[in-house]
Design a protein around this nucleic acid. Sequence first.
RNA 1: GCCGGUGUGGCGAAAUGGCAGACGCACAGGACUUAAAAUCCUGGGACUUUAAAAAGUCGUGUGGGUUCGAGUCCCACCACCGGCACCA
Length: 996
Amino acid sequence: MSSSRRQYPFHLIEPKWQNVWEQQQAFRAFGPGDEIPASHPFALRHKISGKVSPNQLPPKFYILDMFPYPSGVGLHVGHPEGYTATDILARYKRAQGFNVLHPMGWDSFGLPAEQYAVKTGQHPRKTTEENIATFKRQIKSLGFSYDWKRELATTDPDYFKWTQWIFLKLYNSWFNPDTNKAEPIETLKYPVGLRLPASSPDKTVLETLESNRRIFCDSKRLAYVSEQPVWWCEQLGTVLANEEVVDGKSEVGGFPVVRKPMRQWMLRITAYAEKLIADLNTIDWTDSLKEMQRNWIGRSEGAHVRFRIEGRSEHVRGVSKDLVDADPELIDFSAIDAFIESPDSRLTDSIWVFTTRPDTLFGATYLVLAPEHPCVDELTTDGQRALVESYKAEVTKKSDLQRTELAKDKIGVFTGAYAINPVNGEKIPIWIADYVLASYGTGAIMAVPAHDERDFELAINFKLPIRPVVKPSLEWLSQNGAHLEVSVNVDGKPLTWTYIELIKAAASDKALEPQVFEVYTKRAPEFSAAFANSGVAINSGLLDGLPTAEAKKKITAWLEEKGLGKKTVNFKLRDWLFSRQRYWGEPFPIVWKKDADGKLYHEALPETALPLLPPQLTDYKPTATGEPPLACAKDWVNLPDGSVRETNTMPQWAGSCWYYLRYLDNKNGSAFVGKDAEHYWMGGKAAGVDLYVGGTEHAVLHLLYARFWHKVLFDLGCVSTPEPFFKLVNQGMVLGEDNQKMSKSRGNVIPVDVPVNEAGTDALRLYEMFMGPLEMVKPWSSKGVEGVYRFLGRVWRLFVDEKSETEFEQAQTTAETQNLEVLLDVIKLDPSIKEAAPTPAQLKTLHACIKKVTEDLEGLRFNTAISALMVFVNDAVSWETKPVSVLRDFLILLQPFAPHLAEELWSKVHTPQSTVTLSYQPWPKFDPALLIESEMEIPVQVNGKLRDVIKVSATADNATIEAEAKKSEKVQQFIAGKAIKKVIVVPKKMVNLIVG
RNA sequence: GCCGGUGUGGCGAAAUGGCAGACGCACAGGACUUAAAAUCCUGGGACUUUAAAAAGUCGUGUGGGUUCGAGUCCCACCACCGGCACCA
């Protein structure tokens, strides 16, 4: 920045007011049960003090930032963008009389501190504490109005005690599909004896029952254990999350990663898939963000269809009852039946598939299983076994990336087995191919090559039959189906036509159509593509002639009636892999024990054992076998009673799933949040957090996980709202001056202290918001900072006396004592500022500004609000007399944006009897009466083109306006001698004359 | 490929279907100054006519449409950014 002279002494003003706020505790948020000191500005403004009941408190407004991971390196100018937006709004809402909760904390578990520990041996807690201190100092220097009394860190045992407590809630709950909510595990009825391990002969029925019950409960818990392949990075000596693996390499360091199966904790988020989608309609998020979540959850409606395996005897309904030899009172037979009839069943007389197009069932000419499908080995015939095995081996070798890369070339292998198409009894081959994913649906599909592109490609590659069962549009056919040949029965005579000829004939002769489409293709036709859209069913028996939507309904009903299928909603969302093999995370409050058969089972620690602290270690490196670092602490792992602690830790997401609740009551030692605090801060008109601002990078992960936890807590009666964040806004990224993403390698990172040192925090805040709309991606410009800095200088000069400022400049350089207060007090108000009645024009300028700033803040349009402040100042600098009352209102408007400067100027213009500090001054009210003009300017168009602007009285009616418009000389030039065909007068807006 | 977003001066950007370019940056001219910086004042979309004042034509990614009137609404397309991606 080139300015040699400071626009105004921000270097003195900013620390001064930050100090004052700190000493006053100006931004403490008082909730139910808090003691409000009588001298606190909040008490003065609202005339309450001491302990007050929730209904005595003003309405709340909860404004939340996404709390940061405190890294070792400093903030750059992109970081404070969201924080500035929320702070402006917090200050605005405070001025409006809301009880504002605006907290900040630290998402402080994480890999960097742990990697530093591996390298140096320094305990991650020490690194974390140092980083928090740095971050806090930097954030505090920006003058945000956080209530630091509510600060929290996810690594604090008083905090993660409750993270562990919520985990236990998940562990001890299951999702009841009948009540459609989570319930304590005790409410779970279980079907005894169903495909559970055979009991040893000497065990009593009850012992077996107990063991079975445990296994069954474990299969329903919201937190459960499963064997899962995870990403293991040898060089980093740790397991990585999916997000940390980019193109088959670790995001950090670019080391190779491999898939390794490990015992993992999972959270059953899939149970909430439907609610997580449905409740998006109840919250105020942007459409794009909601859409991202919808896509991630991936809801699709369709059906499960059961294909019997050829040559196997049909499973008889109810036979499972024979397995049970226990007290029938304890048995839920309907649950057993439902299980056997479901695709979850491992009974191997059938293969279940999921399809969104059950209407194309008649066109299913083969089945495809994922290579990992559990039935593959059993189905494979001896003749095909070698081929199948080598294919499977090849697939396992490929990474996920390679599997996707080879997408174009559809390869598969025949298992040798056949299934029966339930609608027509046809014997169809069962294949395996890696384009079918084991993790989606049932891991098996029915292939309808005529109407699915992928099935089509495989069918072409391996010459499998293709049978069209949906009539495509003529247009599509003329592009794609010209070579298709079909046999047609017309009036009893078999004919072979090309498909396109046939459709054309049908189109020209409507009478032909019904009978034409009752054809059965004798030959595998030569398509050039699959027709995957909706159409009308053909070649489909009972469905013929039905449009796709109706055909789906009809065939699904038919399948359900015969016990061959079920209407189903399927989701892309998978259960959440919740464990990490790391040191620096919350330990699981779980121990492992052995039952009488020597089998391991898990058990929760009691709540009284929380917080469960991680052990002290000297080496934080995980072992080469992938065992978590915690396993090294033998004393910690092995308990006196022979049980063993869980050595995995929770992922970083765990702490951020509920931190917004802890802010409400962060000192509570007996509950994760107190009932009163929760009701007060999360209740109200907009339930939950009133405004949440953060980056898009969390659009699916954090925001989905937090919603999930919140819904579980809601179901269990722990919180009072079904959604945590009512309104959510994503701030756009701030790019470097070169229009590129800021990064160390590009060298375009601008640390916050650069603009702060050169122009001050207020200028930084103002520019962050003036750049453009909050949600937009926008480049940084140091010239732009200079512009808003100049504006603040103009504000300063609007208020202060030039002479005394010169004296101040001298005093500053010569004064021995650097007492800020004394120095700044030298500066006097400009003599043109007087206790005077404002002129109508001045009131108009002020109230136009109040209106615009207020409306823009409500709509989060910070950039245009700032331009309104500039317009006011541009006008006010030319006033000969500046009425104090007008300037005071202006300072209240300026305060949210540039709080330090506003406070300093306020301290000069405020009246002594006003005891409430600027931050709690009531927001000025806009008076529409003051904006009414005596005259108005009306643009006049001729044939839609602007020709003149006329002035008429504000009360002029349409007829008068029209007459005045026609009188205008300029308009006359264009209408003279022409007939006026039509006149449009928009009241108080404009006139349009249409001439011929 | 699918979903979402964005295209307006030299630049960041404004505009409930009604005067396109508010506000700011950069630029130019002027005042102040020995000078520079800072500050203050003035100017500006492009093109054409004009000595000038002034006037006219065109102009919001492209092509259509609706309307008295379109940056704004509708249809088709193009470019860029972001997300998802063999999801049956």
